[in-house]
Amino acid sequence: MKFKEMSKAELYELSKKFNIKNRSAMSKDELVKALSKYEKTVSKNDEPSRQTVTSHMPEQPKQEAYVPKKEYYVPDRYNIDTIVLLPVNPKKEYVYWEVSDKTADGFCNKFSTVDPVFILKVFAGEDGSVSELASVRVGKYGNWYFDLYCPGQKLWAEIGMLDSTGNYHTISASKKIMMPADRISDLIDEETWMTVGENIEKIYTLSGITDMQKEELLSSARMHSELFKKLHKTEGGMSSSTLAQKGGE
């Protein structure tokens, strides 16, 4: 993180974060100076880069780094039986679950278990051809990221318990979710062959199928400075001479 490369407005916003006194009266150089001792502590999060999404999660919900002004109490669980699977992308799924005290106790009584073992499973497929993709030992409630590559498949998750003899019993199952695809479909309908035929490859090229892999586009600007900063930090931007040279596209 280099403070000298930042605008005064950005430095000022940073000084707000570190609660630098008298910041509103400071010049840019003074802000750099006042912030210098924090230069190393300014983490990735403060930088204009996107947060990378990493894999497995601890079971406890994450603590927020920032303490809200007024503390609104929010429970970390609701003491219900639930499990939800949400797709993140074609290669990643997020699951959260919870087993209520009542259900857990009832299970322990029924199977005379003192120390219940909870198992989280993920399945794929449709009726008739179901396959188990993952099975992990977990706590009574929590969340988990899976890295299952299942484009275009239906997935769901289950939370269950093991009895004293090691048999698995389902407690709840999530909805079935269609995972997104990450490539062109192999399926081509007949009319497509009759109308565009072999031209479909060219149409896809003109639709950007190869170029869009090379440079990903920023999409949503909203009131979001980082994205725009990226635009401004180009080397001199585009001049009219480059426009003339490049012509149409």
Partner: peptide, 10 residues
């Protein structure tokens, strides 16, 4: 583009 079946006009 990744729809199923392939969208014939991209």
């Amino acid at each position: 583009l990744y729809a199923k079946p392939r969208p014939r006009f991209g």
